[in-house]
């Protein structure tokens, strides 16, 4: 039963990407019949081959629609942080004013997906770059371009992002 749901979810996702890529291919509709058949076959194969690898144990929670809504809303604070990050980097490129270091902090996230979201967000936001994530303790090692505190809390380094990652994926 579990394997069937895993297969169906992975295949549905693969089919969605395929259908987006072949949009407007049909002469009478959005998709031609051959594209639909080929897409279904390919999506089934992808579901069999990758379902077990991509699907984390206990990953059911991502099937809840409100998490997807949060993931879309998350774009707004992320984009704002990216804009600030780029102005910040531009300023440092021009003035050469840096004080780098690698700091350790523990945001206390448990699932792989939450850690992935937080690590990628950290890389894109002001002055920080994820260097390593400890698998069993969940500690983040972050290269910080302007160290203001030798033993920072997660809020010092990346603001509200750990809370967002927890809301989306835990």
């Amino acid at each position: 039963m579990r394997r069937l749901v895993v297969w169906a979810a992975t295949a549905a996702f693969a089919l969605a990407v395929y259908l987006l890529l072949t949009l407007w291919s049909g002469s009478w509709g959005l998709w031609s019949l051959s594209e639909l058949v080929v897409g279904a076959v390919l999506a089934s194969i992808v579901g069999v081959a990758c379902g077990g690898v991509l699907w984390e144990r206990g990953g059911w929670r991502m099937l809840m629609p409100h998490r997807w809504l949060l993931l879309v809303l998350y774009i707004i604070p992320l984009f704002w942080a990216m804009a600030r990050a780029n102005v910040d980097v531009a300023w440092r490129v021009i003035t050469g004013n840096i004080r780098p270091g690698i700091v350790r902090f523990d945001p206390g996230l448990k699932t792989e997906l939450a850690r992935t979201i937080l690590a990628n967000s950290i890389t894109l936001t002001p002055g920080t770059l994820t260097v390593d994530v400890s698998d069993h303790s969940g500690a983040f090692y972050v290269h910080w371009i302007n160290v203001t505190d030798d033993n920072p809390t997660p809020e010092d380094v990346c603001g509200a992002f750990p809370a967002w990652a927890r809301r989306i994926a835990e």
Partner: peptide
């Protein structure tokens, strides 16, 4: 190693 690093927890 990171150059000019003031702190390196790794």
């Amino acid at each position: 190693k990171p150059a000019q690093a003031v702190v390196d927890h790794m």
